[in-house]
């Protein structure tokens, strides 16, 4: 099994075995996980472009990631893909079906794909996912793609987390009403109209273009067909352009800062939860008990600081 040091060395050498093992460790969340996290967050951070892929169910997100990944792999890049699928609220189980669209690219030493069940935490972006991104960066991946569950409130999170957010649409799905709803339209950096091979796709594309003109900063609209591998280069170039622009304007630093902050808060929450639960007694009025506890914590912090 080896020590944390072996694991770190394996990760740095880019070993997929060590990477999968490291993710498994943070998922299990035992004492080893703490050691590993304090090590990987203790070193100077090295960032890889993190590209969030979102959009309606079935729009072709995974297929698009597949053709884009293939394009990058052909150019000698190392590509990591993390894909989140919803958990059934009834059984707690899930079918993680994104991988199937990239399976033909394996076996492959430069492609790492991992499926995650969204267990309801953080609207899809659980700390484990963010920590996995860090592991992939550590292992020297040139690009990291993060596919998240359909459209909903949760996707708003992805914009404070990913460097570039790509919204994948497909003909028919995106009628005007859906365009106007949902903050994601305003938060996406790139619109992709996929499935352009479908009949009447041009009408949907025109509708999207008309909608985009109403936005303050209309994002580029890239028509593609993941099925026919058409205009994959257009998607890659649009991502690169946005990334470069954000890097030069300092926006990227802010995104990464917010990533750290979200993580920090989620860690504190997790670590405090147990302590808090221990403090509660069933005969207390819950709201008052909560306010009292926070007061106590603040007092402790003040005292600790003044010493």
């Amino acid at each position: 099994m080896g020590t944390i040091e072996d694991l770190i060395n394996g990760l740095k050498a880019g070993s997929q075995w060590h990477l999968a093992r490291a993710i498994n460790i943070i998922e299990k969340d035992g004492p080893e996980s703490e050691l590993l996290l304090s090590r990987i967050y203790g070193e100077v951070e090295k960032f890889s472009p993190l590209i969030g892929i979102t959009g309606f169910g079935g729009a072709g997100k995974s297929s698009l990631v597949g053709v884009v990944a293939e394009y990058l792999l052909d150019r000698g890049k190392k590509v990591g893909v993390l894909a989140v699928d919803p958990t059934s609220p009834r059984s707690g189980g899930s079918i993680l079906g994104d991988r199937i669209r990239l399976q033909h690219l394996f076996p492959n030493e430069n492609l790492f794909f991992r499926s995650y069940a969204n267990k309801g935490a953080f609207g899809g972006l659980s700390p484990v996912l963010m920590e996995s991104v860090r592991l992939l960066e550590f292992a020297g991946f040139d690009y990291i793609f993060l596919e998240t569950v359909g459209i909903g409130q949760s996707e708003v999170d992805i914009s404070s987390f990913a460097d570039v957010v790509v919204l994948v649409l497909s003909p028919g799905l995106g009628d005007e009403i859906q365009f106007l709803k949902g903050g994601i339209m305003e938060l996406a950096d790139v619109f992709v109209m996929n499935k352009m091979d479908m009949p009447n796709a041009n009408i949907s594309l025109a509708a999207l273009e008309a909608y985009a003109r109403l936005l303050d900063e209309p994002p580029p609209i890239i028509p593609t067909s993941a099925l026919l591998k058409e205009n994959v280069v257009g998607v890659v170039e649009a991502i690169e352009r946005v990334y470069t622009h954000k890097a030069e304007s300092g926006v990227l630093d802010k995104v990464r800062q917010s990533r750290r902050e979200v993580l920090y808060v989620s860690w504190v929450e997790k670590m405090l939860k147990e302590v808090i639960a221990e403090q509660y007694r069933p005969d207390e009025v819950p709201y008052r008990a909560a306010a009292d506890l926070v007061k106590k914590i603040r007092r402790c912090l003040r005292e600790a600081e003044s010493h």
Partner: peptide, 24 residues
């Protein structure tokens, strides 16, 4: 209650092995 990764059809042994590895 299980998390299931379905690979699809026509998989080679090495594809399946790498999937088992990457997905733990």
């Amino acid at each position: 209650g299980y998390d299931v990764v379905y690979t699809g059809i026509r998989q080679t042994p090495s594809q399946i092995a790498q999937t088992a590895l990457q997905e733990s």
